[in-house]
Design a protein around this nucleic acid. Structure first.
Lengths: 102, 102
DNA sequence: TCGCTTGTTCGATATTATTCGAACAATAGC
DNA sequence: GCTATTGTTCGAATAATATCGAACAAGCGA
């Protein structure tokens, strides 16, 4: 498919990160990525249409939260934990420690 | 004026907090409150119209980030640091430690 | 090459946010 | 009571987001 836009660590903006994670769907994606290490888009769709998921993954990518690489026909996603922790120490941990909505 | 809606600590939702803080105006308000302890709405308006500020303070109140009390004709605002730190340990600190946009 | 799978992109719609002027409410002081 | 001050609320315009079907693109295997 394409090559993706990933901001460098120094270009990650706190407002963009907070906005990206304020959406329940995206926060859920990030939680699952934190648990499972990495996953394809399809593995995390929860029954949602592909176009919706693609949109959310783009927001996560462009805000610097997720890194996507091509793997055959599918896309493998992982959290940019190290980059995030370098730029905003403790932020990702604090958010992931928050109890998910029941 | 009125009495305000302040969610109890246990009703503070991470999505609402992240959404509230993803707005540059509101994040700036929170930064100033963190520095100065407390402030009236007018002291933080930065030249913006009162109705806009009132809107932002409402978002901050209803998400559980700020507590507002009446003080004569003005409203004094302070961060609910203890409540936030109890529900989402380290979150507020991590966000406040992020370098403000220059 | 053909088809299958995985995602992206486009376009349209619906929902939600932001912004701000104008009117209103509440308090303090004269 | 009158007036000034401080914010809230209302209403409307504008902007940004979310959602999803349909069409497209790229790799893989038969």
């Amino acid at each position: 498919m394409r090559q993706f836009v990933h901001p460098s660590a120094s270009d990650i903006r706190i407002e963009s990160v907070l906005h990206a994670l304020s959406d329940p769907v995206r926060l859920s994606i990030v939680r699952q990525l934190a648990q499972e290490g990495e996953a394809t888009c399809a593995a995390l769709d929860g029954g949602r249409p592909k176009s919706s998921m693609s949109h959310h993954f783009r927001i996560l990518r462009e805000s610097g939260i997720v890194k996507t690489r091509n793997e055959g026909t599918s896309h493998m996603n992982e959290l940019r934990s190290a980059d995030l922790d370098q730029v905003f120490p403790g932020l990702l941990t604090a958010i992931l420690n928050a109890a998910p909505n029941l």
